[in-house]
């Protein structure tokens, strides 16, 4: 049986990759994928705990997260398409017109 700590380490590594990608990459689509990566890293941790503790709450949470992530991708991709059309660019550094 694989110990819980292994899953958690994997989850942490995935989350860290997501964070690093989000902070260092410029392409909006990549950022979007990084967010998905972080969400799923958290899902992995939930499932691992759920199984280790024998409860179902963790798995219920995972479903919620997946639903939210699906909704978020729908809205997010729509925004990305609009940005791409308006700016002719997917570089996140050029999306700063809300700055004072």
């Amino acid at each position: 049986m694989v110990p819980v700590s292994d899953y958690l380490v994997l989850s942490a590594v995935l989350f860290g990759l997501g964070v690093a990608g989000f902070v260092f990459k410029r392409n909006i689509v990549t950022l979007f994928m990084c967010i998905e990566l972080m969400l799923n890293a958290v899902n992995l941790a939930f499932v691992a705990f759920s199984r280790a503790l024998g409860g179902l709450q963790g798995q219920v949470y995972v479903f919620f997260v997946i639903v939210v992530a699906a909704a978020e991708s729908a809205v997010g991709l729509a925004i990305i398409i609009l940005i791409a059309r308006n700016r002719r660019s997917l570089n996140v550094e050029r999306v700063d017109s809300l700055k004072l």
């Binding site: 964070v19 902070v23 260092f24 410029r26 809300l98 004072l100």
Partner: peptide
């Protein structure tokens, strides 16, 4: 303080992290 608000999404993310 307003220099914190650079308008750069990734810098916000850095602050969050």
């Amino acid at each position: 303080l307003r220099r914190v608000y650079s308008g750069n999404t990734r810098s916000y993310a850095t602050w969050v992290v």
